[in-house]
């Protein structure tokens, strides 16, 4: 019997079980999203088996606004390798656009790996949803990521709030601070405000990972990071842990330098820490501090008779100065 005729179909039973399992996981995932959506917007996403098809990878478009940002490159590479070896698992969630195009709703990470692995086709599940729902779903999915850093999470929640409250992110921020102040001062909100506050409450309850109060006190300040660091994070050039260290460097010039070096040489976290520590504040020391330093070094210098003599002369002068 030649190789070609060998039966290699020994694992169909367990393969089926595994596929069933992953289908069930997908359904559970969709159900979880549905529950969130139900509380958020009062709609459900429906998906039918007939909507599960395979489409050319080039027909999938991504909303740049919504595209996930930082992806752990190592994790991404692992996923790509797994895809090369075993193929694409699961389905991307898309919604139909005109001209046989599809907008990605969920699955950015897998799509990236599929592109890297040079797949020409990917399995998708077409969801029947409108613009608004697509964005909310995509934001929710983005918030499920394991490698989401606190800044991205903060930005994602703000965007979700701005979508739900129909106002800009800046307006959301000021609303949040108002909410906090009113709670602390026990003031009565206006009708409009109390409606907005109810929505905010609901969003935080749905996301269920942070209270609105700690979001305001712990998370919003993160957005005050220097702009260049926020940019680098956004473009996925640097990890969050390194960014927090660099952000602590007060002086702009060395901070920019450190940021550049970190990106260019892919410095490790401990190297970044070390460099940040070495950066001394470029403040001019006070006269008093300079005196202290000189005096600290003096005993050694006095051992030299020539220097001791000169010091003696200077000391007399100083004494005179103090007595004046």
């Amino acid at each position: 019997m030649g190789k070609a005729t060998r039966n290699a179909d020994f694992f169909s039973l367990s393969q089926q079980t595994a596929e069933l399992e992953s289908a069930q996981e997908r359904i559970a995932e969709l159900e979880a999203f549905n529950q969130q959506l139900q509380t958020l917007v009062g709609t459900q996403v429906s998906s039918h088996a007939k909507n599960a098809i395979t489409v050319p990878i080039t027909s999938i478009v991504r909303d740049p606004e919504q595209a996930r940002r930082w992806f752990d490159p190592e994790e991404q590479a692992k996923l790509t390798a797994a895809m090369r070896e075993f193929g694409f698992r699961g389905r991307l969630w898309v919604r139909a656009l005109p001209d046989s195009k599809y907008q990605l709703v969920a699955g950015e990470r897998r799509l990236r790996s599929a592109l890297a692995a040079e797949f020409t086709e990917v399995p998708v599940e077409i969801l029947d949803i409108d613009d608004d729902l697509a964005i909310v779903l995509s934001l929710l999915e983005n918030l499920q990521r394991v490698d989401l850093n606190p800044i991205e999470e903060t930005q994602g929640i703000l965007r979700l709030l701005s979508r739900r409250l129909q106002c800009s992110v800046a307006e959301v921020t000021s609303l949040l601070y108002r909410m906090k102040n009113q709670q602390q001062r026990q003031e009565e909100p206006t009708l409009e405000e109390s409606q907005a506050f109810a929505t905010i409450n609901q969003v935080f309850e749905t996301i269920g990972r942070i209270s609105w109060m700690s979001f305001i006190t712990m998370r919003l300040p993160l957005l005050n990071f220097p702009q260049e660091i926020l940019d680098a994070l956004q473009q996925g050039q640097i990890e969050y842990t390194k960014a927090t260290i660099i952000a602590r460097v007060k002086d702009e010039q060395p901070r920019l330098q450190l940021l550049q070096d970190t990106i260019a040489n892919n410095l490790s976290l401990s190297e970044v820490k070390l460099r940040a520590k070495e950066i001394k504040p470029s403040r001019i020391p006070s006269l008093q501090e300079e005196f202290k330093q000189v005096i600290k070094a003096l005993p050694k210098a006095l051992k030299d008779p020539r220097k001791a003599k000169a010091a003696q002369a200077l000391l007399e002068k100083l004494k005179q100065l103090v007595d004046e």
Binding site: N7, F10, F11, L13, S14, T17, A18
Partner: peptide
């Protein structure tokens, strides 16, 4: 061998169902 490979299939199926 076909026997052992089929046995492995059954084991994997059993493993998945039992874990659940």
């Amino acid at each position: 061998t076909p026997k052992s490979l089929s046995g492995c299939d059954a084991l994997l199926t059993w493993y998945r169902l039992s874990c659940k």
